[in-house]
Simulated assay, not measured.
Amino acid sequence: DALGTRAAKFPYFPLLIKLIDAHDELSVQVHPNDDYALRVEGEYGKTELWYVVDAAPGAELLYGFAHEISKEEFRRRIEDNTLLNVVRHVPVQKGDVFFIPAGTLHAIGKGILICEIQQNSNTTYRIYDYGRIGADGKPRDLHIEKALDVTSLAPAPAYACGNEVDLFAGARARLLAACGYFTAYHLTVDGECVLTVSEDSFQCLTVLSGNVQLRTETDGLQLQKGESVFLPAGLGHCVLAGMGDLILSKI
């Protein structure tokens, strides 16, 4: 199976990997956990990881609350448009990492390029949208009642990603996150790096900068910034050659 043995517990392809280039403030939102999403929406919830690929000077994102609030205050601040006064505004720079468990309020700010690794789910509850108007000429829908059900009202804990790991011969590697839904590494290649794709999981490579060549026993592929490639479980050994930064994602 191309997805690997660890993917057997998922009913469909388990990951979405995106590059999000925010030219404006994106909506404030939250995702439910699996239990709530399966019961209410009929699909899985969403836990995700953000890696900041680039950020304009002064750029910031929203990540949880600045201090704990009550559900009543949460509702009131949504209704009177003062929600941004109590959320945590986090200045960001290239290389920052944010792990966003289901239930964490979050938003990407203007001028940030994000690589996002997430559960494969479309369930999103929009909480605040800066008064934007949709294509129908009306304010875009908010999902206040469901957001009240699932949002953690305490400050999000500070997240420290892992240290450098010696798992990929020829590359510097840092563990970004490991959870029940995905594992992600940041790789810096300068020369040649050997990857091993075992039977337990596929691997996805996303190039953040530079140019690298992927070589398997039977084929070769040139990859540049912004491109991704899927490596099926059981592929075995392959080589990355060149110079670049990549995200490696797997189950």
Rank of each mutant, 00 (worst) to 15 (best):
E43W: 00
D1L: 10
H23E: 14
G64K: 07
K94D: 00
L205V: 02
Q213T: 12
V229R: 10
E116V: 03
I78M: 09
Q93S: 13
D1N: 11
L235I: 05
S201T: 15
G220T: 12
H31G: 04
L221W: 00
D200V: 11
E164K: 14
G226Y: 10
S70Q: 07
A177F: 01
V194M: 12
Q203G: 00
A178I: 02
A233S: 12
K250Q: 14
Y12S: 09
H186K: 15
N211H: 13
D54E: 15
T216P: 07
S228Q: 13
F168H: 10
G234C: 02
I112N: 03
G234V: 08
G103T: 05
I133Y: 14
A8V: 15
C179R: 11
D35H: 11
R6K: 15
A37C: 07
I127H: 01
A184L: 08
N120D: 14
G4C: 04
H23N: 13
V53F: 00
V92A: 07
V86D: 09
L221M: 09
A171D: 08
A233C: 09
K110C: 06
D190W: 02
P139G: 03
H106S: 05
A7G: 05
F99Q: 04
A233T: 06
G58Y: 11
K146Q: 13
R132G: 07
F65S: 00
I247H: 02
P14D: 08
N81E: 09
Y128E: 06
A177S: 15
L221T: 11
C193T: 15
G244Y: 00
A169H: 05
S209N: 12
C115V: 11
G95F: 06
V28L: 15
F10K: 10
Q118K: 10
T47P: 06
A169C: 02
G244A: 08
